[in-house]
């Protein structure tokens, strides 16, 4: 038998299409966009996505797309470890499962059995569920929760469609969180107060080591600055903060870079959170994900969570809080 090197397929060279999603116009649009990809009809997305013992690492290198239709629930209560920014009705939805980026610390590696990316094409059902929830009062909705939605915009333009939907729903505020840097994709959209654009930033050294496939933080910061200038509500998230060697200098420098790149006083707020992870997810991640030191750090166990010790937690958040306090009022610095 000829010996050969392993060659992964191109990302998205395979698209699974669930029977229920087959005739949806969004499906047709995605298939047009990936006309060279192989299409495989499937009965249900879980037939692919929920299988046991999947090869996470290889899938992450070359993910397939799974186009599906969501049924049942469309809005979820946010996790207890997510900042709610003072909103009483804080929900998230799942328009996509998984992400094109590959952060070493990402909890999705522990949460989902597969690294293939599911896109739910029936956006109109999400809109209808959101309308129904709005009838009961104002709603804060995180759109980019178990994914990075703006990073998928070239595949399915959901960020744009949600912003347009939100614009005419006074009780609705959406948060769109991303590590992407392509603000140009949204530059032609008139800003709306109903949407908060949130960028997650890390020191360049942390991003280079732990945030594979993401744009460099300097580019993300430029995108955030452009959005701020254009009049958008902009949030910056330093989350997760990692206690890596030299973390004090790295994170202090990051805050300095932020203050230089944009008018921090104009930011909606800043959200800070040290690395914390569900212990079961961490266990799965050690089995599935590419091994990195983040997964093997001697975290403290606090009920269902693995995280830094209380003392480490305190030193990390106080450093960042005091750095940001020089540029932004204290009541706009949220610690998770």
């Amino acid at each position: 038998m000829p010996s050969t090197e392993y060659r992964p397929p191109r990302p998205f060279s395979r698209i699974y299409v669930e029977d229920a999603a087959r005739d949806h116009p969004e499906t047709a649009r995605v298939l047009r966009r990936f006309s060279r990809s192989r299409t495989v009809p499937i009965s249900h997305y879980k037939d692919i996505f929920n299988r046991p013992r999947q090869e996470w690492r290889a899938q992450k290198e070359s993910p397939a797309l799974i186009l599906a239709a969501r049924h049942g629930e469309f809005l979820y209560d946010a996790s207890a470890y997510t900042p709610t920014f003072g909103h009483k009705r804080f929900h998230y939805n799942a328009l996509a499962l998984n992400c094109v980026y590959d952060c070493a610390y990402c909890y999705l590696q522990g949460m989902f059995p597969s690294a293939h990316i599911v896109l739910f094409v029936n956006i109109e059902d999400y809109f209808a569920a959101t309308e129904a929830a709005l009838a009961e009062g104002p709603l804060y909705l995180a759109l980019s929760y178990d994914t990075d939605l703006p990073a998928l915009e070239h595949i399915i333009p959901y960020t744009r469609r949600w912003i347009e939907f939100t614009r005419t729903r006074p009780g609705l505020t959406v948060e769109i969180r991303t590590k992407s840097a392509s603000f140009n994709r949204f530059a032609d959209i008139t800003p709306t107060d109903n949407a908060v654009l949130a960028w997650t930033l890390s020191p360049a050294s942390v991003a280079a080591r732990y945030e594979a496939k993401t744009p460099p933080p300097a580019q993300r910061l430029r995108a955030a600055a452009k959005a701020l200038e254009a009049g958008w509500r902009v949030r910056l998230c330093i989350d997760p903060v990692l206690r890596v060697p030299g973390w004090e200098n790295a994170y202090t420098a990051l805050v300095d870079e932020i203050a230089e790149a944009l008018d921090a006083g104009k930011l909606e707020d800043v959200s800070l959170g040290v690395f914390r992870i569900n212990r079961d997810y961490l266990k799965h991640m050690k089995r599935r994900a590419a091994p990195t030191d983040v997964l093997y750090h001697p975290y403290e166990k606090r009920s269902a969570l693995a995280t830094y010790t209380a003392e480490e937690h305190k030193s990390m958040t106080s450093l960042l809080r005091s750095c940001f306090a020089r540029h932004i009022p204290a009541d706009r610095i949220h610690i998770v």
Binding site: P8, R14, I42, D47
Partner: peptide, 17 residues
Amino acid sequence: RRYYPDILLRHSLPEAG
């Protein structure tokens, strides 16, 4: 019952069900 082999290697052959 349907089986979907997870094809995670590059090949140049056509595919079929």
